[in-house]
Design a binder for these strands. Structure first.
Lengths: 371, 371
DNA sequence: TGTACCTTCGTGCACGAGCACAAATGTATA
DNA sequence: TATACATTTGTGCTCGTGCACGAAGGTACA
């Protein structure tokens, strides 16, 4: 006799206990649904007695907020600012903005007036100027994609004074008090990259690391952390590889040709290249046009150009950090905080996806997941 | 002067064109909303003229189905059968069942009577017996997690005769006509595993591959495909590694001890182990208790036990195939097909996630994504 | 006692799709 | 022409939350 089981589950049916509604809570607490609503949304104008009574009921029963009904009956309005580096199609920040837009669609009846500010992430002066402008804008909340630490700290101070809630995407900034942040753990990211690259190249070889040059001699927050994670891995695991740090200029791209030529015309053997920003495809293309072969490459972010380079075999590993997810949940969290005063989880680290030419075709860019 | 931009987007507001509703379509077509409803749900009882008129309007306007409203106003009932291998907590099939449950929650007002049948995936007779039982059950639809090809083809034939729609999860089966399938591309999966393992071990070394033994001398569909992908990669890339195929018995686990001991007491050097089913942790534990070190391991599926072994460093790479996603979308697709007659995309390949001990902590098992 | 004002609370409508049921129209037959 | 029946169409209620509005109750002061 062979084992086999049949389980009958009448879901949402008899087995599931009756779903409780606002009106049920109201009856139990001996008040009207309006009062329950006021308590649940922290709207005030409720007597101490009524509040206590409702909170007591709320502790006992397991009320599950119905997002479907909310979504159609919401009527509130908010002004929300989004401040990020400039967006170009198919690139990293475009994905974050996509995610933000999708969150707005989920609560389509909430009237959100979005004001988007962008700055040049390679130019500290552009960032300062944009932040200055933002500081004077009237708003209910702001989502910030930070690059320069000190500038962001200043902006946040002014937001704190005005009691305007802010959420970070892409990177958390210390010495600020955001409502939440949605970001990769960049230190671990660098650490993982080091592990991946050293696992596929011989000992005692050179690794060239490219990182973006910025005005004001200030590195992006993310790059600093990734670099730290990278070197810490090598140190911790007693790796014998040598690191060559190469600057990479986005604002003066003609310089890069020079850096690269200098690198590859030196006597050094370079079996591995690591790119800590999302511009890996530029270097991949340089290698291709200059017929340099046999170099292993690990790069960041699933930009259209990087994906193409991965598929062509120019790049070996791409690391993704779910930018759509970051944008989506930053905005969704902000909306639910504003509308429902929903408690917020502050730390939100996103996935680090490892993509190769084999699994890239199956990768879903979150947009696909939601719709 | 530095560039910076401010874009004001009044989303869902003036810039976005007015959202159209069923009633709008009805007015445009000169009928009532009831008639539009009948056309959109293929319920019949509509005159040719009215149908044409409505379809014409539907082509012109971009009606976006509002899941929120649907979700609260649905009232239909369905009997749905789920047939999969047995489920143990924290294991692969449990995740698929989790996904299925979550889909039911999304349409919480639809009365679904779920009937779950499970069989022993290592025992062909158990599968036959369970399928036989299922064939006699009254139902509106069935979701199948297949293992044995021929048995599944037989079951599907009987479903075809009764015009009952079925969707596969985990694996597609040829010579059947499912409504859809949600599965990894197991061939590519094996191919990718081969690439990963050969990239971290020296040439000319041995790779031990473990695959499950089953009654009736029949391999699981998934294993066959993965093995094929694996060997094809080695062949295509002229790899000099030697493959040692090792049987792995789940039903008589005491045999495994013997297989493993025999393997490691042979003179052969085994720097790499590949496990093509989700039981990698068993072998990882054998290595640990027998103090065998320096063996690289790649295994399938993010079971609780495998994740633990990955974190401990026993396993180097885990390959995930989004079981929750598979279950969720299989059920969601089925429901939307039954309720709305929504057109279905047949082929649905899921992501192949590469997990290491560095990025495993950030991995979201889809459950987290949805709620 | 009457008026003004504040706090607290309850009522009722809106949102948009699904679906039951009633109403209207068409067709066939005695 | 009257009746029965089939086909097609329209109407109105339902779901649960958000929120506006107005009612009820309390307090202060003339």
């Amino acid at each position: 006799m062979h084992e086999h089981k049949c389980i009958k589950i009448k879901s949402n049916f008899s087995s599931m206990r009756k779903k409780i509604r606002i009106i049920d809570i109201a009856k139990m607490a001996g008040v009207s649904k309006g009062t329950v609503d006021r308590v649940m949304h922290n709207r005030g104008n409720v007597s101490e007695a009524a509040r206590k009574s409702i909170e007591k009921v709320l502790e006992q029963v397991n009320y599950k907020h119905n997002i479907h009904v909310s979504s159609i009956s919401l009527k509130s309005r908010y002004k929300i600012v989004v401040a990020t580096p400039e967006v170009s199609p198919g690139a990293y920040w475009a994905s974050i903005h996509n995610g933000i837009q999708h969150a707005l669609e989920e609560y389509e009846n909430v009237r959100v007036e979005l004001q988007v500010f962008t700055y040049n992430q390679y130019d500290i002066y552009s960032c300062r100027e944009t932040y200055e402008q933002i500081a004077g804008v009237e708003m209910d909340a702001i989502i910030i994609g930070p690059t320069f630490k000190e500038e962001t700290v200043n902006l946040c101070k002014r937001m704190d004074e005005r009691e305007i809630p802010y959420i970070f995407v892409d990177s958390n900034i210390e010495d600020t008090s955001p409502l939440a942040f949605f970001s990769a753990d960049h230190y671990v990211c660098g650490y993982m990259i080091a592990k991946l690259i050293t696992s596929i190249i011989p000992d005692h070889t050179n690794i060239a690391i490219f990182q973006a040059v910025r005005t004001g001699d200030r590195s992006a927050n993310t790059t600093i952390l990734r670099k730290k994670g990278f070197t810490d891995y090598l140190e911790k695991n007693k790796c014998t590889n040598l690191i060559l740090s190469i600057p990479f200029s986005v604002m003066e791209p003609e310089d890069n040709e020079m850096y690269l030529t200098r690198l590859f015309h030196s006597q050094k053997d370079i079996p591995a290249i690591v790119v800590l920003n999302s511009r890996g495809n530029f270097i991949a293309n340089y290698l291709e046009t200059n017929l340099i072969e046999g170099v292993k490459m690990i790069c960041m972010d699933l930009t259209t150009a990087n994906i193409e380079a991965l598929k062509k075999g120019q790049i070996d590993y791409l690391i993704g950090q779910e930018p759509e997810y970051q944008g989506f949940y930053a905005m969704k969290t902000m909306l639910e905080y504003l509308i429902f005063k929903k408690p917020v989880q502050k730390q939100n680290y996103v996935q680090l996806d490892i993509l190769t030419r084999e699994n890239i075709d199956f990768y879903k860019s979150f947009n696909n997941i939601m719709y």
